[in-house]
Amino acid sequence: MPSNDIRAVDAAREAKVAAARDLSDVSHEPGVVKPDAILVVDGVRRQFGGLVAVDVDHLEFPRGCITALIGPNGAGKTTLFNLLTGFDRPQDGDWEFRPTADTAKKMRNVPAYRVARAGMVRTFQLTKALSKMTVLDNMKLAATRQQGERIWPSLLPFLWRAQDQAIEARAMELLARFKLDTKAQEYAGTLSGGQRKLLEMARALMTEPTIVMLDEPMAGVNPALTQSLLEHVKALRSDGMSVIFVEHDMDVVRDISDWVVVMAQGGVIAEGPPDVVSANPHVIDAYLGARHDEALPEVELGAPLADDAEAVREEIAAEIHETEKEAGQ
């Protein structure tokens, strides 16, 4: 079905152009107001003892876009995800989820499972495949509002069988899209690392989310799968979802994101389209700053003085990627 593929590619390109158009009038400053935000964060602060892990004054994520959240290790990206999805509680702050342009839900103190039901679904930096369940059960689990998930009706299969079959059909469709359909009956624990990432993403989609939040979806995935993962992320946008994803590889970020938010030491230090952000000296500093205490080899210490900023950035991104991998993330 080549024509289908072409249509998908077209749709993806259109969506990207549309998203870029939306944001073209937005200035490139941290905390800038967007014309149509889907998630608005205000004064969120999370401290672990004396360590301020997250301290975000104001941050808006644009609707229908792929927003990359980048920043050196320990910048607070995962903690921010945890806070926004109800897995952690902040000391301070508020945030608002706007599923449509004219509805807004205050999300502070909403428990994680309700956040997911409201349409904000997340994945984890360390993949959470449910190993001793089949791939198909992983998928079916994620469907919401299941009759058979209530304790007494669950004993009477005729009450929920029809719904269960519809869920299974949808799960198989998604699995086929993620090329996991042949693995449907296998235990998720037998999948490779990359396949688990795919499964986790596919599973998240079973909840029919409005926002998909991916914490390092490409980490530890072999290059062959990375490309396919990227295509899947782009497809989410074409399907009308908003995506927020944490990533270190600047090439990836440039390739798929419409907007980039840079965090360092808990705060947002820069925002803008990918090419603007990656040329921002604050951003380069932040990445280097994170590495200063790691006793850099001389070549790299000299690097910022080089004229070709592009080359430097790439080198840095690659380096960071390397260290990430070594750290076993």
């Binding site: 999805t85 897995f87 428990p111 994680a112 499972y113 309700r114 997911a116 039901r117 679904v121 997340r122 994945t123 984890f124 959470k128 495949a129 449910l130 190993s131 001793k132 369940m133 059960d137 079916k140 689990l141 994620a142 919401t144 299941q146 009759q147 058979g148 998930e149 209530r150 304790i151 669950s154 004993l155 299969p157 929920w160 269960d164 599973r203 998240a204 079973m206 909840t207």
Partner: peptide, 21 residues
């Protein structure tokens, strides 16, 4: 049943179950 499936998911990783609503 789906109820049993949720229990098994909780046994495997309760945060994953939570993240799925």
């Amino acid at each position: 049943s789906p109820w049993g499936r949720v229990l098994k998911a909780i046994r495997e990783d309760e945060d994953a179950a939570r993240a799925l609503g």
